[in-house]
């Protein structure tokens, strides 16, 4: 039997080029909308751009960023946002997924409703929560006051720390359903026989959760956490709608800082360098996740 490689070599040139012809349109699109902008952004990041004049500055933009208080403050806020929102979304998502994996009447409807917040565009979600948190007309103040929990209206978006936590609440509400759905899908792949066998062996509910559910959910958790962490680290739109980075820069996360630097200060070189640093951080986070959660086990 002739080797596969031998057969390929025997083909005429036109036939060998044929596959490339098929993927050419895709290559052109990928190159023009992804690879070219990526390379061009790196090119710009080496320049100081003032209107039409560009001066080559090497890595000065990068070193300036690393010496900037604004950058480190924004990075700190981004980590806070990411850690708190992803942790809350994960816990809430896991709880809801376990609940919706039980058999109860109306389960289908509940699963359907779960998708609703996630299906809303982020802009709509941001406007919605901005109104809920509104100090004078907001539903949250109205509710808490009627319940008698607060005496005076609270200005939820009025102080830096409170504004950040309010934005996190809005983000958690929108994004926990995605984690819940992924984990629910993961739960459904666990064969019931495992639980039955464990029950016969006398394992408690908690023990069954720790020894079967959690390990079997690992792949789904990995996907959910990686996706959400990266998304949360890039958070922009909900900040843009709800607080515009304020008050007193309290919600100025790294993406928003990049936007302000690039499009309001029009420091394009500096902004491009910032985006590269953000991309680098996200890449490192993905690596860590794959290392930590990367071992996969097959239970079937």
């Amino acid at each position: 039997m002739p080797s596969t490689a031998g057969r390929l070599r025997a083909k005429p040139l036109a036939a060998r080029l044929q596959p490339f012809l098929y993927i050419l349109p895709a290559l052109v699109v990928v190159f023009s909308v992804i690879i070219f902008p990526l390379l061009y952004a790196f090119f710009i990041s080496l320049y100081k751009v003032v209107g039409p004049s560009q001066t080559f500055v090497g890595l000065a933009n990068y070193t300036n960023i690393l010496h900037s208080d604004f950058f480190w403050a924004a990075t700190g806020r981004t980590f806070y946002f990411t850690v708190v929102s992803v942790a809350l979304e994960f816990l809430l998502g896991l709880g809801i997924a376990l609940l919706l994996n039980q058999d109860f009447p109306g389960r289908g409807l509940m699963r359907g409703l779960l998708i609703l917040p996630w299906a809303l565009p982020t802009v709509v979600n941001g406007v919605l929560w901005a109104w809920i948190f509104d100090a004078n007309y907001g539903a949250l103040n109205g509710l808490l006051k009627q319940l008698g929990w607060i005496k005076e209206y609270v200005i939820w978006l009025g102080s830096p720390a409170m504004a950040m936590n309010s934005v996190i609440v809005a983000d958690v509400w929108k994004n926990f359903p995605m984690i819940a759905l992924l984990l629910l899908a993961g739960l459904q792949t666990i064969p019931d026989v495992l639980y039955e066998a464990a029950e016969i062996d006398g394992a408690s509910r908690w023990r069954r959760f720790l020894a079967i559910t959690l390990p079997a959910l690992k792949p789904a958790m990995l996907v959910a956490l990686v996706l959400r962490t990266m998304e949360a680290f890039k958070v922009f739109d909900i900040i843009y709608i709800m607080t515009k980075g304020g008050p007193a820069d309290g919600t100025q996360v790294i993406s928003y800082y990049t936007y302000v630097t690039t499009f309001q200060y029009t420091k394009f070189g500096y902004g491009a360098a910032l985006s590269y640093l953000v991309a680098l951080v996200i890449f490192l986070m993905a690596l860590v996740y794959f290392k930590v959660l990367g071992t996969q086990e097959d239970y079937r």
Binding site: G158, S159, G246, P247, A248, D249, Q264, Y265, T266, K267
Partner: peptide
Amino acid sequence: VWYNEFSQVLQVEVQNALAGK
């Protein structure tokens, strides 16, 4: 020339004072 950057910095610090920080 760098008005937007000037303004942004001033906005943040004025808000710091308004918020009592």
